[in-house]
């Protein structure tokens, strides 16, 4: 009796969340798909007629799309490379017995809480500015020519800015995982005569594999939609050199008011993200019952 009753209550308690998310997922996505097959310009009132795959053809054959796709992957890949490599190093270091570990942790983790517009503008002006930036001054000290970072290497500059914000995330997650590594297990291995290197290779490293995968996939989800950093630094330029997919769709939609092709771009972005998301679901899903 009571179990049937509580099951009904449970369903009732669950339904608002399910309905909201269902609506949030289905309605805009259906609209994106609908627009993507129609000729719809916000500023030019035309028939809004069905055009089949034309928007997709337009969006996918636009040279800007290929640039944006490559830039998106380069941004994601570059940031992942830096954050995972440096994150593993930092996490291993912070896992050692050190003085003032609490404060060190606070220092390392701070950039993650800085809003993207702030971090991008701070880096753009105070570090990467070719005249007044600290990096220009450093280059000058070392006898090298100053680099106009955002003009000469816009994508690399963005990778640096974004990686700075995400390094704390990777470090923190890997550190948490390291700290959950059973101390007894390590001690037992030590007693068995395993050297530091052997312990690292056979106990620590395998233990880090899963959290590293989690870091990679979660960061990928967020990094696919980098937007604010581009908006306030390079505005996608010079040309399309630092335009990623998110920024391209934004400029089609809100700068050129081409709803149809922006929607096609949005749909393409969804498909790409879904491919990556499937990987993550598998990984996280496996852990659900653990």
């Amino acid at each position: 009796m009571s179990s049937i009753h509580s099951r009904a209550t449970a369903r009732l308690a669950l339904s608002p969340a399910v309905i909201l998310l269902l609506a949030w997922m289905a309605i805009p996505l259906a609209m994106t798909l609908w627009y993507s097959f129609h000729d719809y310009q916000l500023l030019i009132p035309r028939g809004n007629e069905f055009v089949g795959w034309e928007n997709y053809a337009y969006f996918l054959t636009d040279p800007a799309f290929l640039h944006a796709l490559v830039n998106t992957l380069a941004l994601v890949g570059g940031v992942l490379l830096i954050t995972v490599a440096a994150g593993i190093g930092l996490a291993l270091l912070l896992d050692q017995p050190i003085y003032g570990r609490g404060i060190v942790r606070v220092l390392v983790v701070s950039p993650f809480f800085v809003m993207p517009t702030v971090s991008a503008l701070v880096w753009k002006n105070m570090f990467m500015n070719p005249v007044n930036g600290l990096l220009a001054w450093l280059a000058q000290l070392l006898g090298m020519p100053a680099i106009d970072w955002l003009a000469q290497a816009p994508l690399l500059s963005l990778v640096i800015i974004v990686a700075w914000g995400w390094l704390p995330f990777a470090t923190l997650i890997l550190l948490t995982a390291l700290q959950s590594l059973d101390a007894e297990q390590k001690e037992a291995a030590q007693m068995d005569g395993a050297g530091a290197l052997a312990r690292f290779r056979h106990i620590t490293l395998p233990h880090l594999a899963r959290p590293t995968a989690v870091v990679i996939l979660i960061q990928t989800i967020f990094l696919l939609s980098i937007f604010a950093e581009i908006l306030v630094t390079t505005n996608g330029g010079p040309g399309t050199q630092s335009t990623n997919l998110a920024f391209l769709v934004y400029s089609q939609a809100l700068l050129r008011f081409d709803v149809g092709s922006a929607s096609a771009g949005g749909a393409v972005a969804v498909v790409l993200a879904n491919i990556l998301a499937l990987l993550l679901m598998r990984l996280v899903g496996r852990n659900l019952d653990a």
């Binding site: 449970a10 998310l21 949005g266 993200a273 993550l280």
Partner: peptide
């Protein structure tokens, strides 16, 4: 009160978070 579908519901909710914002920018706007 977990049921057989709880796991599926949880994973589905997670999947909505993975929807890239830019994919629904136009309709939301």
């Amino acid at each position: 009160s977990p049921t057989r579908s709880t796991r599926t519901v949880l994973l589905w909710m997670l999947s909505t978070r993975m929807l890239p914002a830019v994919g629904v920018l136009v309709p939301v706007y």
